[in-house]
Nucleic acid binder design. Structure first.
Length: 718
DNA sequence: CCGTAGCCACCC
DNA sequence: GGTGGCTACGGA
């Protein structure tokens, strides 16, 4: 009996064998989709093993109902990458494949054909233009329009029927619309950029990881564009990964200006259909450049020649639920398997990448000069202890804002906390608006007049009286962006304040509008969260105020200070007008904190030195590798007991298995959470321990009574 | 007597 | 994850 191994979209870390008709065996290639019966249901699966002969006496297998593809929709390279990722992240392959397939294909639909973007005139069409009688007006005007250059579908006035006729006659053919020519020519690189380009182009074209560490404004994007150009010149495609693409309109605009219609965007807010179109064009090679968020790392490129990871330190590359992969790390592995270069760009490298660069595993290229030669901003630590705070803002900071606005500058206030206030407190009885599903406080949102949990999304109306004691003495404690915005609007009524956070910025257009108001000088004060740290140029910005850096200093998460250093440096980099250094003020109640001092006095690089020394001493990444077994259960204690029970399964040479602990926020969205931390200096040893333990866990009845998952290279230990 | 809630094994 | 089978109760 012939059988084939099929992988199904179920959370089971194994494949299932189905019987293959001898006549079918030839058609059934790895990567093809099939429709198979599974229990009571019918599912769409992917062939992961070529048909093979089963030994005599093997159990009867069920039949494959239908083979959906002649050609595998997933190229062999991508299927192998998914298999690697399933193994590395200890995640079911079926769910990994689901991340790599468009929704319609996952459901079993036939792949749509990539819609044509444009048309070109054929030789026959050129001849027809000469001979076609004038009465064929529609055809003549279509051919005329295409006679100088190919045009995109949108540029042509022809109806679908007219196009169809011209295609049938062989007068026109589908073609990519022409790339827009650069609007103002490519800028001449600075000597520093030119040297960096030489180093990027040096050596063979094969696999290499380049860490491009460039201060804000040093012109990293221009280097990306040049390398992309080089890849395209060899007939290859390029993938540019970016954090939250809808929030980087400037990058998008620059790519389009340089490369025209060959640039495709791929992100989670596209419709399923639009995603499928980009997926198909990546596969047929017509999408020459894809700019996308982390899921774009799974696109089925036909001839990928370069991957750029912009803002490589950004946390959004790590998926934080379900299949917990790091798109940056998968990108590096994919590039290695394809033998093509990867470019990691950032002003503030992650400690992992910095360590790899310093140890020689990555090539380290640094850009230290800003293109317009603006000196780097000086960060001043502002001791706010004992100062009267106006909604979180100290008098010296407010005076600085006043001074800068008065001199025609713009001011940015950064605060990584949305809403009006993080706590609503009853002054009479101490009730503090707890979330009923999480160990967290509800955040007061004045604009929407709601109390909202930022961890599970639960919300309720803002009570007038304390729900516990009926007193009317409810006070908002602490400050979020809404409150800072209001405080500044009250204090500086003659200036306009704009708020940038995910409550206010809900679309590409809203962001563009607010950014335009700043560039045109209609808005003078900006208040916002990390959205403001991401790649926007504010040419008139002269002052940056960081409302508080203290959260990170008290934080228990081992990456909190690294993240704070990145945010402060990124936000500070927005300050400074042509030729003039910006001013950066950092409010704190811990002005003597050594790491804060290091950051302010010596910059991000020095902070990294200090943090790397700390990580080495404590055996944390990048000097050791971590993994977590996470467990969630209805009842507090159940998750912890489970982890205690399975802890011995992970014991292995060179692996430290810590005591299971309740997660940083134990209850979240109604579930009690706990985690088991594993640490090893050897990635191989850690992976062996995980592999063996997961195999045993799947056999354990206790493991079926709650939800558990593995997090390899966890981003935070909360 | 049936109805259903909650638990658990199984899915090629 | 989805499904169906099993057991344990409760209402007329």
């Amino acid at each position: 009996m012939l059988a084939a191994a099929i992988c199904l979209p179920v959370p089971l870390r194994r494949s299932f064998d189905y019987r293959v008709d001898a006549a079918l065996a030839g058609r059934l290639r790895r990567g093809c989709r099939v429709r198979v019966p599974f229990g009571r249901r019918t599912l769409v699966g992917v062939v992961v093993g070529a048909p093979r002969e089963l030994p005599e006496g093997a159990d009867e297998l069920r039949d494959i109902e239908a083979v959906l593809d002649d050609e595998p929709p997933i190229p062999a390279e991508l299927l192998a990458l998914c298999e690697w990722a399933a193994d590395y992240y200890l995640h079911p392959l079926g769910e990994v494949l689901a991340a790599a397939l468009p929704a319609a294909l996952r459901r079993g639909a036939m792949p749509a054909t990539a819609q044509t973007e444009g048309y070109a005139l054929t030789a026959a069409g050129r001849a027809a233009l000469e001979t076609l009688p004038p009465r064929h007006r529609a055809q003549r005007s279509l051919l005329q329009a295409l006679s100088t250059a190919p045009r995109s579908r949108a540029d042509l006035v022809a109806t679908a029927a007219v196009l169809r006729r011209a295609l049938d006659a062989g007068w026109i053919e589908a073609a990519d619309a022409p790339a827009a020519t650069p609007a103002s020519g490519t800028p001449t690189p600075t000597p520093e950029q030119a040297a960096a380009l030489d180093r990027l182009a040096a050596g063979d074209a094969g696999f290499a990881v380049h860490l491009l560490e460039g201060v804000t404004g040093s012109g990293k994007t221009e280097l990306y564009l040049r390398r992309i150009e080089a890849a395209l010149a060899e007939g290859r495609q390029a993938l540019l990964l970016a954090p939250e693409i809808s929030l980087t309109p400037q990058l998008d605009a620059r790519l389009r200006e340089r490369f025209g219609d060959g640039v495709h965007r791929f992100h989670s807010t596209l419709t399923d259909r639009a995603r499928e179109q980009v997926w198909l064009r990546a596969r047929d090679g017509r999408a020459r450049i894809v700019v996308g968020t982390r899921s774009a790392v799974w696109l089925p490129f036909a001839r990928l020649g370069l991957i750029v990871v912009d803002e490589e330190h950004d946390t959004s590359y790590k998926q934080q639920d379900g299949f917990r992969y790091s798109a940056r790390d998968v990108a590096i592995l994919r590039a290695q398997r394809l033998d093509v270069p990867v470019l990691l760009g950032t002003a503030t490298p992650s400690l992992e990448s910095l360590h790899n660069a310093r140890s020689g595993r990555y090539r380290h290229i640094r850009l230290q000069r800003r293109v317009h030669d603006t000196p780097p901003p000086q960060v001043r630590v502002l001791d706010v202890r004992g100062l009267p705070l106006d909604h979180g803002l100290s008098p010296p900071l407010l005076q600085a804002v006043d001074r800068h606005l008065d001199q025609g500058g713009q001011a940015l206030l950064f605060l990584n906390r949305r809403g009006y206030a993080p706590v609503l407190l009853c002054h009479a009885c101490g009730w503090n608006a707890p979330c009923t599903h999480c160990d967290a406080h509800l955040t007061l949102h004045r604009g929407r007049n709601r109390l909202i949990c930022h961890h599970c999304g639960a919300q309720q109306a803002v009570p007038r009286h304390c729900p516990s004691c009926s007193a009317t003495s409810l006070i908002a404690v602490g400050a979020g962006t809404e409150r800072i915005e209001q405080a500044l609007a009250n204090r500086f009524p003659q200036y306009r304040v704009a708020r940038f956070d995910s409550d206010r910025i809900t679309s590409h257009e809203a962001l563009e509008r607010q950014l335009a108001d700043i560039r045109d000088g209609r808005t003078q004060i900006l208040v916002g969260t990390q959205i403001l740290a991401k790649g926007h140029d504010f040419p008139g910005l002269s002052l940056v105020g960081i409302v508080s850096a203290d959260q990170a200093l008290y934080g228990t998460d081992f990456r909190a200070v690294e993240r704070m250093g990145q945010l402060v440096t990124q936000v500070a980099g927005r300050a400074g007008r042509a030729g003039q250094p910006g001013e950066v003020w950092l409010q704190t109640h811990e002005p003597e904190h050594p790491l804060l001092q290091t950051l302010a006095r010596d910059g991000y690089g020095a902070l990294c030195d200090a943090l790397l020394a700390e990580r080495r001493d404590t055996g944390l990444p990048p000097y050791a590798h971590l993994a977590l077994l996470r467990a969630e259960a209805r009842e507090a204690g159940q998750a912890l007991r489970f982890l205690q029970l399975v802890r011995p399964c992970f014991e292995a040479p060179d692996v430290t298995v810590y005591e299971p602990l309740p997660s940083g926020m134990e209850r979240r969205a109604g579930l009690a959470r706990a985690q088991l931390l594993l640490q090893s200096a050897s990635r191989a040893a850690l992976h062996r321990s995980l592999g063996a333990a997961v195999a045993r866990l799947q056999q354990m009845p206790e493991a079926r009574r709650l939800r558990w998952s593995v997090d390899v290279d966890p981003y935070d230990l909360m």
